[in-house]
Amino acid sequence: MYHVLFQPFTDVNWSFFGWLNEGPLTLSFFLHGLIVLPMFFIYFQEKKRLKNKQENDGE
């Protein structure tokens, strides 16, 4: 399985992105993760804001 999931580095020049590309979808997870994961933080922050707003409105 190892040689299927992890491919040896074969490109002309070494680079960080080329290195990440050796693992199974590791490059994609890295890039997508940076883009999508912080949205959870935004989500909870906004949830807190909306709850606070609702409480203030209720009083």
């Binding site: 490109d11 002309v12 992105f17 990440l20 590309n21 979808l25």
Partner: peptide, 12 residues
Amino acid sequence: TPEYWWEIGALF
């Protein structure tokens, strides 16, 4: 351009 663009281009 380098090979890593295959995966980036394909997935995005």
